[in-house]
């Protein structure tokens, strides 16, 4: 952790730091869900376009 952030974090009262940690963790979880949701979609798509050939 960068020094300035460490100082800031250390100076926070415990209940506030706990709340921020929880909120930050939830946000990370939300972001992970968003990324997972996209990856599931993206890996299901073909890697190349469908090239149409008349028959």
């Amino acid at each position: 952790m960068p020094t300035a952030l460490h100082k800031f974090w250390s100076a926070l009262p415990a209940p506030v730091a706990g709340l921020l940690a929880h909120l930050g963790s939830v946000a990370i979880g939300l972001f992970a869900a968003f990324v997972l949701y996209y990856v599931l979609y993206r890996i299901g798509l073909p890697s190349k376009p469908f090239i149409y050939v008349a028959f």
Partner: peptide, 11 residues
């Protein structure tokens, strides 16, 4: 646990 809860909530 909050990360997991966030993940489930997000999904």
């Amino acid at each position: 646990w909050a990360v997991l809860a966030g993940g489930i909530l997000g999904l």
